[in-house]
Write a protein that binds this DNA or RNA. Structure first.
Lengths: 122, 122
DNA sequence: AAGACATTTCGAGAAACATAGAAATGTATG
DNA sequence: CATACATTTCTATGTTTCTCGAAATGTCTT
């Protein structure tokens, strides 16, 4: 992952409301199905309205939450699929995995030679 | 880590220039020392000027890069310590570890019951 | 103390962002 | 087909953010 994609994803998560939406969707158990091309998509999950209710308390979805969901979608972090009247949202697990891998790698790399050079291998 | 801290860190990384600075510091080998209170701090590392040179090509540090380093510092992602005339910058490994743990956890959690329900327990 | 060097702070202007209400779109249901 | 429902798009507004140059701060050297 290059710094541009990192910035895009992080910008999306860099708003408290979006971070909450993201956290909610992460914890929202969500069965998936495998599509014709092998891609994974949510079968059930949180509707946009449910997300909104959880985040703002509002019964009906607000334009603000809709806007934030779009930002998360455009950053590739969240998927949305129409199901009847509602939109069903879910975390894009591939994108999340890439993000997790980046930070995991960085976490290991950031101390690459400290441990060796300082003689205190812990 | 709560959604507020996540948003703070991600907002800091949500700018391309800052993401580059972060990436540079991650890859910049940096010996650390353990201070009196057991805290880890950089002994050598990239000076603010070196960071700036790498990111902008400018010989002398710009106010813009100084601003971005401050943002990263305030988000807790980067440490800076004076060493003579220069500022020595380094990744805050604890913060990075927390971020890595959050996404790792999310990555596992986001499919918590998909796997169970879809009959593919891995 | 004076000068050079590395960096930060200040101030201003342009661009991007978050929010909210109103209108528009798409979809089921009677 | 008309109505209700879920969501998005549009428009306007106030706020924050990024950037740049100039001035200020802190630190070494002589």
């Amino acid at each position: 992952m290059d710094h541009k994609e990192l910035a895009t994803m992080c910008k999306a998560l860099g708003d408290p409301t979006r971070a909450r939406i993201f956290g909610f969707l992460v914890n929202c158990c969500c069965p998936v199905a495998v599509g014709d091309e092998g891609e994974v998509r949510p079968v059930e999950g949180a509707t946009a309205g449910e997300v909104c209710c959880h985040v703002t308390g509002s019964e009906t979805i607000t334009s603000t939450v809709s806007f934030h969901l779009k930002e998360l979608r455009q950053a590739g972090l969240v998927t949305a699929e129409r199901r009847g009247k509602s939109m069903v949202c879910a975390i894009d697990r591939e994108a999340l995995a890439r993000l997790a891998a980046y930070f995991d790698d960085a976490s290991k790399r950031s101390g690459c030679c400290c441990d060796d050079q300082q003689g205190e291998p812990k």
